[in-house]
Design a protein around this nucleic acid. Sequence first.
DNA 1: CACCCGCACACAAACGTTTGTGTGATTACG
DNA 2: CGTAATCACACAAACGTTTGTGTGCGGGTG
Lengths: 370, 370
Amino acid sequence: MKATVPKRLGYCQEGDRNSLPQEAVLAMTRPKAPTLQTVASAVGVDVSTVSRVLNSAADERERWASAETVARILVTAAELGYRRNPHGASLRTARSLQVGVIVPRLQDFVLATIFEGIDEAASEHGYAAFVTNSLDDPAQREARVAQLLDRRVDGIILCDARREDPLLRKLAAQRVPFVLASRTSDTYPGAFADDAQGGHLAAEHLAANGYTDVAVIAGPDYASTANLRIEGFRAGLEAHGLSLPEHRLVRTGFDAAAGRAGVDQLLAQGPAPDAIFATNDFAAIGAIGGLREHGLRVPEDVGIVGYNDTPLAASLPVPMTTIRSPMLDVGRTAFGLLESVIAGGHPTSVALTPTLIVRESTMSSAPTPA
Amino acid sequence: MKATVPKRLGYCQEGDRNSLPQEAVLAMTRPKAPTLQTVASAVGVDVSTVSRVLNSAADERERWASAETVARILVTAAELGYRRNPHGASLRTARSLQVGVIVPRLQDFVLATIFEGIDEAASEHGYAAFVTNSLDDPAQREARVAQLLDRRVDGIILCDARREDPLLRKLAAQRVPFVLASRTSDTYPGAFADDAQGGHLAAEHLAANGYTDVAVIAGPDYASTANLRIEGFRAGLEAHGLSLPEHRLVRTGFDAAAGRAGVDQLLAQGPAPDAIFATNDFAAIGAIGGLREHGLRVPEDVGIVGYNDTPLAASLPVPMTTIRSPMLDVGRTAFGLLESVIAGGHPTSVALTPTLIVRESTMSSAPTPA
DNA sequence: CACCCGCACACAAACGTTTGTGTGATTACG
DNA sequence: CGTAATCACACAAACGTTTGTGTGCGGGTG
């Protein structure tokens, strides 16, 4: 009997199953899917012919069978509801048409969006995409990568790369196809938003609006995104004759709690700055909360610039100036790069351009100039 | 040629590959993974023995081979780095150890968290989980489910069920193992937060704090979550002698923009309510923004209760009262139920209890009673 | 001593594909 | 008209597992 089921899985016994009339049992069991063989014998040809016809592009089909046979194969496959069994195919071809994605945390809006882009592109190209959290923990990410490799994914997209990342070197040594997304590392190819430019835009905007004493609340220093945004921001300030002194830069994290903590740190060191650039919208929201707790108002007392243009930014009590980065495209592009690597190519990284979205959080003077 | 790659992504041609010396090319190619056969001949036994030993629990192994053979198999498998090929296994067993998850949208913090729970549980049980968006669009979700089925997933978790859902009936008729999560529908089993109770808690809290004219901004009516929260809320109000008149209930959506729109709708109909219960934290944040635009302050003029206890809620300028629902557990439980269904069981739905988190957004009178 | 049983394995048959290599029949060509 | 090329297929061998069944051997029993 085929119906052996692992017992350890608290399997509802259903002793009645055997007492039912035969057809009832048959009705309960899922009818097994038609295979190439089913279609082949229905049409009266060999499985190989069916396989070739079904796997060819529409205009290539007649290379493998006569027009009439092609038609018969197509219609019987359709009416039998034939669907290729990916396990058989993958076993034969050693390609799974599956890719894995590692993100720091899927709860993070930015990463979720990037994955949406990856998933869209993957699905359009006949791939399926797995995603899992690494929680930015080296042990966890290594374990997750191992799981993906055990699943025989064709490639991996890493969204949690660090600078000097040993895991990447290991993957490269094992010739595992992979690309990066969101965060850069060394010279491995990947899809990124141009974070330096984003930082630059933020700085220019603040400088142009008369802010002179600006501070930055940034994410952890193992994330290239934070680093590049700071670098670009600093360069932008300097281009306008301003600077970012060390005590005006605090590094906390990417979430709201981190933003609040960042403000506490800044204010503990002296007077409040004119404006704060947070490298993440959520941190920015937390910062606004922190400022309020210290009796400071946005934008009257302190201007705020966030990053990513989360949907929230526009709907906040004080709509927030922020840098919009093309997260969905980062994801789509990353998948494209991975596909190229899988095909044996050596693509180069792609940087997508961010844009500045100006809203009220940096309008202390604009509406009613003092 | 398989190597068709979208040109738009500057894909490096690599004509040089053919000009390299033969060994160099061989060195570039990934060494093929050891199979059962590799291990078997290294040890000097049959593949079947290796398979049985490797697939048995530690204390069951000696049923299949002598202690010495078991040990030899184990160490050679380890030092060869043997990893079972899932395609071969799945082909044979007709089980993929993969499950699919359909969510309305992964960008939504709530759904991302539920998926995290599913993924955790799945991974612990040797399964891998796919997730994709349905965008709450019937055509899209049907297409996604079909893709999952084509991948031969062992079961599906649907987080976007609707009331009277034809897709669910279809799946049930085809005997596809599936469970629901987050949203209920008919009597299909699933894991949910007890949304009625959550609504009740919100109502009780508002009533107990002296609010009498309360309004609700809710999500779309095809989502059971919104409906149950409203139902529970209404019941809670009535238990305290209050009521929810029709014009105090507006249905928009789950995001910040929807919350803003909800406030506009409410205020267009007359005076502002005492308090607003939004069935989602993001909608609540949007509502706060909308209120501010109308010159109303939270909590001085209007109290706000959100839902889900998003991390943001605690760090908002005015920390928000909200209902915490155990999203991660919803995910974990959903996977457990699915596993049971896959094993042939008929589990019953599980409702997890939410808790009220009181913060400043409903403290107009509490700190300084008028 | 004949017998049976359990042990420790081996054998072999699938599962559903893909793809290299036949093979008859028809067509084309010199 | 003979030969070669082409067509329209069929055959068969993998890919790596899992699992039902077979088998020789040693030891215990009657």
